[in-house]
Deep mutational scan, measured.
Amino acid sequence: TQTTHELTIPNNLIGCIIGRQGANINEIRQMSGAQIKIANPVEGSSGRQVTITGSAASISLAQYLINARLSSE
C-alpha cells in the first residue's frame, strides 16, 4: 500500500537535499524507491514542503537518507 509523508525542510538546507542539478534528490529517489516531491518556495515561509510517497519501508528509507544529508551539512 502507498502512503504519503510530508515534512518541511528549512530553506537554507534544501540545497543540500536537492544537490547539483538534482543529483542528491535523484540518488535518494533511486535508493529509497519512493516518490519525492519538493514544493516550490512559498513567499514568507522559512521552509519547503517535501512530500514522500511510497511503501512504508521506502518512506522511512527516504527520510533516513534526507536526515543523513541534513546532519552531514
Rank of each mutant, 00 (worst) to 15 (best):
T1C: 06
Q2S: 13
Q2R: 13
T3I: 05
T3Y: 06
T3L: 14
T3D: 13
T3F: 15
T3H: 15
T3V: 13
T4V: 09
T4Q: 09
T4L: 06
H5C: 14
H5A: 15
H5Y: 09
E6C: 15
E6D: 04
L7S: 04
L7R: 05
L7F: 10
T8Y: 13
I9E: 00
I9P: 01
I9D: 02
P10G: 03
P10H: 04
P10W: 00
P10K: 07
P10Y: 01
P10D: 04
P10N: 00
N11A: 10
N12V: 05
N12Q: 12
N12H: 12
N12T: 10
L13V: 04
L13D: 12
L13N: 06
L13M: 13
L13Y: 10
I14L: 08
I14C: 06
I14N: 01
I14M: 08
I14K: 01
G15W: 08
G15Y: 10
C16H: 08
C16V: 09
C16I: 15
I17L: 11
I17N: 00
I17A: 02
I17C: 00
I18M: 03
I18D: 04
I18A: 05
G19C: 02
Q21E: 09
Q21N: 13
G22M: 07
G22N: 14
G22K: 05
A23Q: 13
A23E: 13
A23K: 14
A23D: 10
A23S: 12
A23W: 04
A23V: 09
N24A: 12
N24M: 13
N26I: 08
N26L: 05
N26M: 09
E27L: 06
I28P: 00
I28D: 03
R29P: 01
R29I: 09
R29V: 08
Q30T: 14
Q30C: 05
Q30F: 09
Q30D: 03
M31H: 09
S32D: 00
S32R: 01
S32M: 02
G33E: 03
G33Y: 00
G33P: 00
Q35A: 09
I36N: 02
I36R: 01
I36P: 00
I36K: 00
K37V: 11
I38N: 01
I38A: 02
I38Q: 01
A39W: 10
A39T: 06
A39R: 07
A39I: 11
N40I: 03
N40G: 13
N40Q: 14
N40T: 07
P41H: 14
P41V: 06
V42Y: 08
V42L: 08
E43L: 11
E43P: 12
G44N: 08
G44W: 04
G44V: 05
S45H: 06
S45D: 13
S45Q: 10
S45P: 04
S45M: 12
S45Y: 11
S46E: 09
S46M: 08
S46C: 11
G47T: 12
G47D: 13
G47K: 12
R48E: 01
R48A: 09
R48D: 02
Q49D: 06
Q49H: 10
Q49N: 10
Q49K: 10
V50I: 13
V50Y: 03
V50R: 01
T51F: 10
T51I: 09
T51L: 11
T51C: 13
I52V: 06
I52Q: 00
I52E: 02
T53D: 03
T53C: 08
T53Y: 08
G54M: 00
G54C: 01
G54L: 01
G54E: 01
A56L: 13
A57L: 05
S58P: 03
I59N: 04
S60H: 13
S60E: 15
L61M: 12
L61C: 13
L61Y: 14
L61G: 03
A62C: 01
A62F: 02
Q63D: 14
Q63W: 05
Q63R: 13
Q63P: 00
Y64I: 05
L65E: 07
I66A: 04
I66E: 00
I66C: 07
I66R: 00
N67G: 09
N67Y: 12
N67D: 14
A68F: 04
A68Q: 15
A68H: 15
L70M: 06
L70W: 03
L70T: 05
S71D: 11
S71C: 13
S71W: 07
S71Y: 06
S72R: 15
S72Q: 04
S72P: 03
E73V: 15
